[in-house]
Simulated assay, not measured.
Amino acid sequence: MATWAEFAAEQPDLAAFVQSRFAADRHALIATLRKDGAPRISGVEPDFARGDLWVGMMPASLKSLDLRRDPRFSLHCNTTTASMTEAGDAKISGSAEFWTDKTDYLKELFERTGWQPNPDELDLFRLTVTEVVSITVEGDEMVVLSWREGKGTRRVAKK
C-alpha cells in the first residue's frame, strides 16, 4: 500500500484534486467494517500532513474498534451538489494503521492549527492508499479518473 506522499509523487494532479476536495469541507465520511462484516459509515476529519493521510477519533469509538480489528476503509469527501458541476467528488480506499506514537503528529498539528488534543483522548490512524477516485463533470460527460496501486490510472467518460 502506498503512503499519501508516494501516491502524490506518482499522480500529482489527481492527488492535488482529491486533497482539495477533502480540504473544501473538513468533514468526510469513512466506511469501516463491523464485526459481522456489515459496513459502518461514520464522520471523520481527514488530515493530510507530513506526507501522510491521518484520521483521529475518540478512543474505543465503534469506527476505531472496526479499524483496529479490520483496517480496510473507504473515505468519501463531502459532496455538496447533486450535479457535481461545481467541484466534483473524491474517494480514497486503503488500509488504516493504528498509530501509538502521536507526539510528532500532535506537535505539528498544534503548529498548523493551534489545536492540541489530549493524546489520551485520541485514537490516531495513518491511512495508506490502494485506490483513489475522482469524479467530475466536463461538458456533458461525467469523467471518472481512478488510480489503483500497481495498475496506474484509468479514465472513463460517460454521457
Rank of each mutant, 00 (worst) to 15 (best):
Q19P: 07
L67P: 11
E86Q: 13
A2D: 07
T130V: 10
G88T: 06
R34S: 09
A49Q: 13
R72C: 01
T153Q: 13
W115I: 03
V18S: 11
V133R: 14
D89H: 10
A87P: 00
G88Y: 09
G37Y: 01
K159Y: 07
T32Y: 02
E6N: 03
G51R: 15
I135N: 09
G94D: 03
L124F: 04
L53P: 06
I92F: 05
V129E: 02
T80C: 02
F98L: 09
D66G: 03
R148K: 14
V132P: 05
S42E: 06
S95N: 00
G88K: 02
S83C: 08
A8R: 10
A16Q: 10
L14T: 15
S134H: 05
V156T: 14
K102R: 13
R155A: 10
R26T: 12
A90R: 01
S42Y: 09
Q19A: 15
R26C: 12
A23S: 14
L127W: 00
T136W: 10
A87N: 05
V55S: 09
F22Y: 09
T113R: 04
P71I: 02
G37C: 08
H27E: 09
E141N: 15
A157T: 14
A5K: 11
S42A: 15
E10T: 03
W99F: 07
A49N: 12
P12A: 03
T79N: 10
M1V: 14
D66K: 04
K102T: 05
H27G: 11
G150K: 10
L106Y: 01
S134C: 12
S61R: 05
V129S: 04
W4A: 03
D120Y: 08
H27A: 14
D104I: 01
T103V: 10
E45F: 06
S146W: 10
R21A: 15
R40F: 04
L62V: 11
F48I: 07
W115P: 00
K63E: 08
D70Q: 13
Q19S: 12
L62N: 06
F22V: 02
R112N: 08
G114M: 06
P119E: 04
